[in-house]
């Protein structure tokens, strides 16, 4: 069984490690990079709790081996806030009660961030469709949908400000 050296950027910091080839990116991030905001809800690609941003696009870190991410740039929920300023999605989820146990939340926040980058003014149906890859067992999704709408408006306003 091979172990390999990997180097990647995690939330802006370069990390290197020696990992077994079979180690998933999720385990590498959680256990070797202390990014415990990456959650494992199924380890087979369905629940979305382990979602991270890998080279700019969302990816399931449970369906990715750490060695596949060698050289990549990774962002986890720990990298979402700007210093201690919450991201507008985080603010909106807080204000709108878009989370209960919070286990699904990191994956949902990153998935919604990608949605709003692609589609700054999504309809309710588009939000629900985009959310459908992330299972939340607690909320029934409605307050999540409302939070995403609010955050979209805030993000649109701030990008309009910036011109």
């Amino acid at each position: 069984m091979t172990s390999l050296d990997v180097t990647m950027t995690v939330n802006g910091r370069t990390v290197t490690g020696r990992v077994e080839a079979r180690r998933t990116l999720a385990d590498f991030l959680r256990k070797d990079c202390a990014a415990t905001g990456v959650h494992l809800g199924c380890e087979h690609g369905v629940c979305g709790a382990c979602t991270v941003v890998l080279d700019g696009c969302t990816a399931r870190s449970c369906c990715t081996l750490a060695v596949q991410a060698d050289g990549a740039e990774v962002m986890t929920v720990e990298g979402l806030a700007d210093g201690t300023d919450l991201h507008p999605l985080q603010e909106a989820f807080w204000a709108r009660h878009g989370l209960q146990c919070g286990f699904c939340t990191p994956g949902i926040l990153l998935t919604m961030r990608e949605l709003l980058a692609d589609n700054p003014d999504p309809s309710e149906e588009e939000i629900r469709e985009s959310l459908s890859g992330n299972i939340c067992r607690c909320t029934g999704y409605q307050f999540i949908v409302e939070a995403v709408k609010d955050a979209a408006a805030v993000l649109r306003a701030s990008s309009a400000d910036r011109g």
């Binding site: 690609g45 979305g48 979602t51 890998l54 696009c57 969302t58 990816a59 399931r60 369906c63 990715t64 998935t111 990608e114 949605l115 985009s130 459908s132 890859g133």
Partner: peptide
């Protein structure tokens, strides 16, 4: 096919 996150990879 699945969801955007799946299709990204």
């Amino acid at each position: 096919v699945g969801h955007v996150t799946i299709r990204n990879r």
